[in-house]
Design a binder for these strands. Structure first.
Lengths: 329, 329
DNA sequence: GAGTAAGTTGTTAGCGCTCACAATAGTTTC
DNA sequence: GAAACTATTGTGAGCGCTAACAACTTACTC
C-alpha cells in the first residue's frame, strides 16, 4: 500500500502538501493540486484511517447502539442512519444489545469509545436508556432515537402522540364511542406516548379512556389479548400499539367469529409492508423510519461539524386507512 | 485519557511490559501482571485502538456488507454476526447497499479496506455478488452468507434445497399430486435453490414440476399471483418462496373464496415470528438466521486467527407444520 | 562452578499521518 | 523600492502503540 510519502515523491512535493490536498485545505495552487491528484490516482493511494485517527483523535465513525435491531422499526431506522452516514463520509459501527440494562448500555458505549467514535446514535426505545446516557456522559455527541432528548442528549422521534390522535380521531369520526387500547410494554417510550395520545384524544372528545390492556408487541400477545376481548366485547373499536399485535388480534377474532370491521374496528401502528395484506387489510399509522434515521444523522452531523448544541427533530406520522375500520353496527 | 506510558509509570515497569500484560503474552511474572492490572484499573486505562491498528495493521473490526438489511432474514443474520463478533472482541462495521451492482459492491469493499477491516461478511443474496467478490480479491478473508462459497470465498448457508424437499415432501405425504411453486426472483441464490429443490422433490416422486410463477418476495406480489391462481385452480397445493408472499397469497385466496387448507394447501418459507398468526396459521420452513450469522463468524474467526483456508458451513432447516396444509379434498 | 537454557524485563525504532511552525515566493502599499 | 502583507510550500515532531532485539535473572546441567 502506498503511503503519503510515496505520493509526495511521485508528485515532486512534500508529504504535507499531499495531506493538504487530501484534506481540501484552501492554500494549494491549482497546478500542484492536480499534480498530486494525478499521483494519487496513479498509485491508487488510500489514506490510512488508523494513522489519521491516531493524530486527530477522530475516527470518522458513528457508533449505532441498538436493541431489537431485527424488528421492522429499528432495522429501518438503522438503515436510514447508515445511508446518511455513508453519504457524509462516515463509517458506521454497530453494537446490538442482547438485553437492555444500564450495564449493557455502559458496556456498549465504552466499546464505542474504544473506537473513538465521533458520535453515538442510540436506537434503544426504553425509557431507562435516556437515564443511563445522562449518567454516563460519553464526551461525544449523542442522538437518541425515539425521544425528545434531554439536557445533554439530542432526540429524534416520530410524533407518537399525534399518531395516536390520528388513529383515535379516525375512529371517533366513524362514530365509535367505546375505543379500547392495546398498549405496548410500558417501559418503552413509544408505548407510553401512544397510550397517552389515545387517552388524551378520547378525553378531548368527552369519551372514556378506561379500556386498556398491555401486550408485549408480539403477534402472540395480540392473539392472547384478542381471545380475551372476543369473549368480553366491551369496545366497538381498538387502537392497537403496533401492527404485529394487530395481526395476532385479527387471528384471534377470526377464530372466535368476531368480524372485523363489522363487529369491531381495528387500527394498528407502524404500517409494515405486510399490513396491507392482513385479513382484513389493516388501517394503521405509518411511521417513516428511514426518514427518522436520516434526521438523526442530520442532528449528529450538525453536532460534530458545527458544534451545534443539543436539539430535537420530530417526524410526522400519517394515517393509512384500509379495510379494518368501519362505522359501528 | 491515560496512555500505556502512564500505566507503566504507575506500576513501576516499562511500557512494553504493560503492553505484554494487555496482550496476554505468556512471559510476565504473576506479581508484575497483578501490579500492572491494578494500575490499569486505577487509571481507567483503555487501549487506543488507532495506535494499535496503525502498527499491527489489524483493526479488530469485521465489515458486514448487506442489502435488504431491514428484512427479517438479513436483519437476523446481521444480529447473529454482531453477537458472535462482539463476543470474540471484534467491532462490527456495516455498509448497506442501496442497490446491488458490481460498482456498489466494489465501493463498499473499498470502504471497508479503508478501515483495514480484518474480514468481510457479505449478506447479499444475489448470484452476481459472488462473481464480484471473485473478481475483486479484497486481500482479507471473506464469508458470503447464503452461498456455498467459491475458490476464494467461504460460504455459510441454510440448506435451501433440503428446505424445499421438506415442504414438498410434507405435501406429497398428505396426498397432494399437483404441487405448484411461487418462486422468488431468480437472481437470488436462495430463490433458485428453493425452486430446484421443489422441482427435484417432485420429479423424485414422479410428479410434474411445471407449475411455477415468479414473485418478488413481497406480500404484494404474492397477492397478485394469488388472484390469478384463484381463478385458475390448477394446483391443490402451493410451495411459496417465503412467508411474505404467502401472506399476500392467503389474502387473495380469502377474497376470492378459495379456502386454505380445504381447497388449497400452502407452505411458506422462513418462519417469521408472525407466520403462526396468519389466517390460517402458516405451515412453513424455519431458517435459523441468527445461527447462520454465528456460523459465519466461526468461519471468519478461524480464517483470521488460524489462517484456515476457505470453507463452508450448512445450517439445517426445519419444517413447522401449522394450519395451512391438509389432505386434498 | 562454568556453560547453557529459559524466563523476565527494558530499549529503540517506526507504523502513516496531521499539527505547528518556518521558509520561500508573489503581491500590494505608500 | 522597501515594508508589509498574503499565498504557497516545506520541516520536524509526535500521536500511542507493538515488534524486534538486547539485557539481565534465575535455574539447571554435567
Amino acid at each position: 500500500m502506498p503511503r503519503l510519502e510515496d505520493v509526495a515523491e511521485r508528485a515532486g512535493v512534500s508529504h504535507q502538501t499531499v495531506s493538504r490536498v487530501i484534506n481540501n485545505h484552501p492554500n494549494v495552487s491549482k497546478a500542484t493540486r492536480e499534480r498530486v491528484e494525478a499521483a494519487i490516482a496513479e498509485l491508487g493511494y488510500r489514506r490510512n484511517t488508523a494513522a489519521r485517527s491516531l493524530v486527530t483523535r477522530k475516527s470518522q465513525t458513528i457508533g449505532v447502539l441498538g436493541s431489537e435491531l431485527s424488528q421492522y422499526g429499528p432495522a429501518n431506522t438503522l438503515l436510514g442512519v447508515e445511508h446518511a452516514a455513508r453519504d457524509a463520509g462516515y463509517f458506521v459501527s454497530i453494537a446490538a444489545l442482547r438485553a437492555v440494562s444500564r450495564e449493557a448500555i455502559f458496556d456498549a458505549i465504552r466499546h464505542f469509545l474504544d473506537q473513538s467514535v465521533d458520535g453515538i446514535v442510540v436506537i434503544v426505545p426504553h425509557s431507562e436508556t435516556l437515564l443511563a446516557l445522562e449518567e454516563l456522559k460519553p464526551g461525544v455527541p449523542v442522538v437518541a432515537v425515539g425521544s425528545l432528548g434531554s439536557e445533554s442528549v439530542s432526540g429524534a422521534m416520530v410524533d407518537q402522540k399525534r399518531g395516536a390522535e390520528l388513529a383515535v380521531g379516525h375512529l371517533i369520526e366513524q362514530g365509535h364511542r367505546r375505543i379500547g387500547h392495546i398498549a405496548g410494554p410500558q417501559d418503552w417510550i413509544d408505548a407510553v406516548a401512544r397510550a397517552e395520545g389515545w387517552s388524551a384524544a378520547l378525553r378531548a372528545a368527552g369519551l372514556d379512556d378506561n379500556l386498556v390492556v398491555e401486550g408485549d408487541w408480539s403477534a402472540g400477545s395480540g392473539y392472547e389479548i384478542g381471545r380475551k376481548l372476543a369473549s368480553e366485547r366491551t369496545a366497538t373499536a381498538l387502537f392497537v400499539g403496533n401492527d404485529q399485535m394487530s395481526l395476532g388480534l385479527l387471528r384471534a377474532f377470526s377464530e372466535a367469529g368476531v368480524r372485523v370491521p363489522e363487529d369491531v374496528s381495528v387500527v394498528g401502528f407502524d404500517d409494515q409492508p405486510e399490513s396491507g395484506y392482513f385479513t382484513p387489510p389493516l388501517t394503521t399509522v405509518r411511521q417513516d423510519f428511514e426518514e427518522l434515521g436520516r434526521r438523526c444523522m442530520d442532528l449528529m452531523l450538525r453536532a460534530i461539524e458545527k458544534g451545534d448544541t443539543v436539539s430535537t427533530t420530530v417526524v410526522e406520522p400519517e394515517l393509512v386507512v384500509r379495510g379494518s375500520t368501519a362505522a359501528p353496527a
